[in-house]
Design a protein around this nucleic acid. Structure first.
Lengths: 78, 78
DNA sequence: TTGTTCTACGGAGTATACTCCGAATTTGAG
DNA sequence: CTCAAATTCGGAGTATACTCCGTAGAACAA
């Protein structure tokens, strides 16, 4: 599994854990609703800047969007 | 230091450890010589696809281009 | 069922990643 | 220092990331 696939899976998984809709996440990250959907379906290869925006909106470390699932440890929301 | 800055620094550091010129790395990765230069000087935010091409050309794990310097352990060339 | 929220999908437009080429500048070896 | 290799810096063009808008379909609750 390459870094692109890991990103798509982690994004969807973490967004759901945070109980955010694609639209709410898009708004918080300053991105478009349809683009979040596309990212989760592997339609685009995001830039590091987009990854930074998403990790901030999800309140996680940027690398957490890119790690293999087995290394993922998610901090609880305070 | 954000993920973009870490990428730029790690790229330059690892490329030099591998004793590759920007031009040779560009050729091996299938990218442009001037683009490698731009990436090392933080002129662009690369996509995950570009990161995959570079990590393959450098024979390292893709995450190694993105980690903080302190976590970098580079495998020797065989 | 009906309504509601979420997600998938399409198309057209904009911003920027990336290419290609040359030339100037820097770096390092001899 | 001189010479060569490496890097930087433009500019112009192409590819694709990303936006914006609408609509259709899925999921799930009342």
């Amino acid at each position: 599994m390459d870094i692109g696939q890991r990103f798509a899976r982690n994004l969807k998984k973490i967004r759901r854990l945070r109980q955010l809709s694609q639209e709410r996440l898009a708004h918080q990250a300053g991105l478009d609703r349809s683009y979040i959907s596309s990212l989760e379906r592997l339609k685009y290869s995001p830039t590091l800047e987009t990854i930074t925006l998403l990790s901030r909106a999800l309140d996680i470390d940027d690398l957490d969007l890119l790690k293999p699932e087995s290394e993922l440890i998610l901090p609880p929301l305070t």
